[in-house]
Every structure is written in C-alpha cells, then in structure tokens.
C-alpha cells in the first residue's frame, strides 16, 4: 500500500490529482490518501480529509512507501519508519503555500537516498520504480534528535 499525505494545514489538489492520474494508468496500485479539505476528489483511490496523529503514524508504519508534500512531519516520520518518500513541493504561484520554501527544503532533502522529488505523474511513476528497487538497504532513524544536538540543548537549559 502507498500512503499519500498532504499534511494538516493546507489542501494540495495538484498532488492529489497527480496521484489520481497515476492510479488511473496503474489499476493494480493500492493507494490510501489523507488529502485535506481540497476541491479535487480522487476517483481512483480511497482517501479521507484528515487523520489523527496516531492514525497517521499507523498508516506510515503499514505503507510500503509514502507520497507527500515537502512537510517536515512527513519527511521525519518516513525516515523514522525507513519508508521511501516521494515528494512534490507546494508552490506559491498555485496558491499552495505562502512562499516557495518547500522547493528549498526539497532541494536539500532530495540529496538523501530514498527521497524522490517529483513534479508530475510521469515523474511519479519513475520515482516509484526507483524507490522499489533497493528495499533492503534502508536504515531507520531514531525518534529523537542526535545526542550531540540534545547535549547542546541541555547546556542551554542548564
């Protein structure tokens, strides 16, 4: 199962429509989406507007891979559960966010293995093929910040 999430703050119809187009062309693909309160309603996969934090974590755990906006919550949770993550940046020119900081963030995070930037349904299809190639190499990331960062903060709080 592929888990699609657009986060809790804003809808992201362009990403939902991209995944819908991909599913139309790949009928065997099972996708479950958390799609916010946008106008676009997908026809080719099941979706809900919102999930609780606990429900969302359990979808991440179940998923084979994740498709998401470039939200830090989505990226960190995917890393924590060692799931590949395919990401589309929200753009201000489509009124998908206030500014284009998701593009900047994506430039940095797409340097990671198992993080795939996309812009359309063709790139999504390519990214999913790539993401499925090396499932055994993924490492999980701790729930907590690295010890060096925690120690730096402990000094600040002392």
């Amino acid at each position: 199962m592929i888990f699609l999430t657009v986060g809790t703050q804003l809808p992201f119809d362009r990403l939902v429509a991209t995944v819908d187009a991909y599913c139309a062309a790949h009928p065997g693909e099972e996708v479950f989406g958390q799609i916010g309160d946008g106008r676009y309603q997908p026809e080719n996969f099941a979706a809900v507007p919102f999930l609780s934090a606990t429900q969302c974590r359990s979808q991440f755990r179940r998923a084979e891979l994740v498709i998401a906006h470039v939200g830090i919550g989505s990226i960190f949770t995917a890393l924590e559960f060692a799931k590949p993550i395919v990401m589309m940046a929200r753009l201000a020119q489509h009124s998908e966010h206030r500014d284009n900081h998701q593009e900047q963030t994506l430039r940095y995070f797409s340097r990671l293995q198992h993080c795939y930037p996309i812009n359309d349904a063709d790139q999504l299809a390519d990214a999913l093929v790539q993401a499925r190639q090396h499932p055994e190499q993924r490492e999980t990331v701790s729930r907590f910040a690295p010890e060096t960062t925690l120690n730096a903060l402990r000094k600040v709080l002392a």
Partner: peptide, 10 residues
C-alpha cells in the same frame, strides 16, 4: 548553530 534534529548530513 545548535545541531540538526535528524542525524543526516544535508
């Protein structure tokens, strides 16, 4: 600079 919240060099 405090350090990153994830152990990755980006």
């Amino acid at each position: 600079y405090l350090g990153s919240l994830i152990p990755l060099n980006l």
